[in-house]
Design a protein around this nucleic acid. Structure first.
Lengths: 343, 343
DNA sequence: ATTTAGCACTCGTTAAGCGAGAGTGCTAAC
DNA sequence: GTTAGCACTCTCGCTTAACGAGTGCTAAAT
């Protein structure tokens, strides 16, 4: 167990390193107002902390920097989220105040807010479309062999998907099917649609429709669309401003990762409610070995449907980021919930 | 006017600089197989070419690099587009062969092809949605005061737009209006929709509808959607591989520009049919002062509806890029045309 | 038993100096 | 008109030296 003084010193070093990005020496720690020990004492403690694995030295005669374990200890035991300033809160509120016509715009806006407030890169996932409910289905033939299927959800979200029309399908039948679905499956969550079709209305369909099998496969295609969540970014290039990313090759690597939505979505998706912090190798993804990802979930009417996250260097302003993320995720939840309530 | 020999030398220097990215000296020019002069002679010519403004020196005792004027002369007089290799053609064909369900996917694929073939960044604009024609309009109420308007075009493109329902509007009336529009304005180009409404059907509407004014403003909102072309990128980070972009701050600048679709669209939109080359300051945009943009237009059934473009350093492989761009733009035109024909 | 002053030592950073190499411009010879 | 020869320039990489920040250890002070 660490002594009180060791805690104080560890905290001081991490704070210092976070703001200055340079190894911190005993002298500068000892000069802090809350530190009443000489550099020599600090040095001894630092040596101990290094032995315990909380600190490391870039080279033998330099100051210390926090190790991954050090950061972990810091966030687990020492971290007190910083309250947002009045100014920040007002800023957030005013940005959210613009009247957005679409849910996606609200989400995109959250990403922007996060990145501009933190000056790191922000990623927002979701909300999972398929949790929302069917409002209306349309299948509009374009030519003899193709049509576009349009799904409108109760949240006003529109998904569309091209489908090819099997030969021998009857346009009247198609209309009938669409009508039946709209009558009987309204308000069924998209995620259950495919099941519901076979479970609830297959009998009806079989009765009225000639080419049952073809019709089913057509519908399955129509509901195939974007199963994966959308990914929104804010400040994609913010991370380049950090001194640890002053190498073009690394930068390129990371930016390329951003282009792969699948991967990003896997890396940032949070499975537990609330704030999650993944430091360096805890991400289990080599290019992020010296990055930290902090995520929070947001909820709609109590259900956690998406993730907001920040990507920065391990030397990240944890206090600030956690505070902001907490605030924004809750605000976003509020806004989305009120919106979904409306409908 | 330049002499035959000066042309030869200018061409040699540019070719060399394009491939090696380093100032080229008299000796290396003279060593080329088609060059039967000694370094000293070359030096004299180079000196003249510099005086004429086609070449410049990074410092007094270094080799020459082409000036912007030099590149301009090169593309205007010396440039012979490189024929694609069999391999490249086969590659393009096979990538285009995948059966895409949506036009946008074809476009996105073109961007990918271009960037991977050229190893620069590619940008594809359009096609302008509003040139396509109305297939079907839907307005689906979500709640008492909001609805989503969906426009399906003859090309299978789906646009959707949230609209707020003015108070006192009658749902039956809304349905009537939508029906009238679908009957009478089918196949009207989106761009003319708003005019057509007032011109062709305002009488009918006035007859049947109570709240004419409110209805019109609602429709105007519904047709407001994305007027600006979409922007597709390929190989956003390719440009970072070029030695002239090995500075993180510049890189950041450029990548930030990529995020501003409006700006990108303005910078890359081509107004003339065929290949356009803008070198350095010809772009009239300071961050691109040492970039070249090469664009080509693509057409659907003879109408030029969009732009494909490449962004690279002024030291760009002009011959190759022009060849590829020419080929891909034509191929894309073919594919899109055949698709639009279908419907 | 802690804490701290003192000191030798280590390493990274910076500046200066130097030689090699690539390239030029000029002159004079071909 | 062309080219060989040569002095000159500038960059680049390497070495050296000085400096400064910081450490670890020892011994003295508290």
């Amino acid at each position: 167990m660490l002594t009180e003084r060791q805690l104080l010193i560890l905290n001081a070093i991490i704070d210092d390193y976070i703001t200055h990005a340079e190894p911190v020496g005993s002298r500068s720690v000892s000069k802090r107002s809350d530190m009443n020990y000489s550099p020599a004492t600090i040095r001894n403690e630092m040596s101990d902390l290094e032995e315990l694995g909380f600190l490391e030295k870039p080279h033998s005669s330099s100051g210390r920097i926090p190790s991954q374990k050090g950061y972990r200890y810091y966030v687990d035991h020492l971290l007190s989220p910083k309250k947002l300033t009045k100014k920040e809160i007002i800023g957030i509120q005013s940005l959210f105040k613009e009247r957005f016509s679409e849910v996606e715009q609200v989400i995109q806006q959250s990403a922007k807010i996060l990145s501009s407030l933190t000056s790191y890169t922000s990623i927002v996932l979701g909300p999972k479309v398929f949790e929302s409910k069917l409002k209306q289905l349309q299948i509009i033939p374009l030519s003899d062999d193709s049509a576009v299927a349009i799904i409108v959800t109760d949240t006003g979200h529109v998904e569309n998907q091209m489908v090819s029309l099997p030969k021998g399908i009857n346009t009247n039948d198609l209309e009938k099917v669409v009508n039946i679905i709209n009558e009987r499956l309204k308000d069924v969550p998209l995620i259950h649609l495919r099941n519901s079709i076979s479970a609830e209305i297959s009998n009806v369909l079989k009765k009225y429709i000639d080419e049952y099998d073809k019709m089913i496969s057509l519908l399955n295609n129509a509901f195939l669309s974007q199963q994966h969540e959308k990914v929104f970014f804010g400040g994609k290039t913010n991370i380049l401003a950090q001194p640890e990313f002053h190498d073009v090759d690394r930068v390129r690597n990371i930016l390329n990762i951003f282009e792969e939505n699948e991967l990003v979505s896997k890396l940032f998706r949070s499975h537990v409610q609330g704030i999650t912090i993944k430091i360096g190798e805890e991400n289990h993804f080599e290019p992020f070995d010296d990055c930290t990802i902090i995520t929070a979930t947001y909820a709609v009417n109590g259900r956690h449907v998406g993730t907001v996250g920040i990507l920065g260097p391990t030397r990240m302003e944890y206090r600030k980021v956690v505070g902001i993320l907490d605030y924004v995720s809750k605000d976003l939840s509020k806004i989305l919930s009120s919106r979904y309530q409306d409908n």
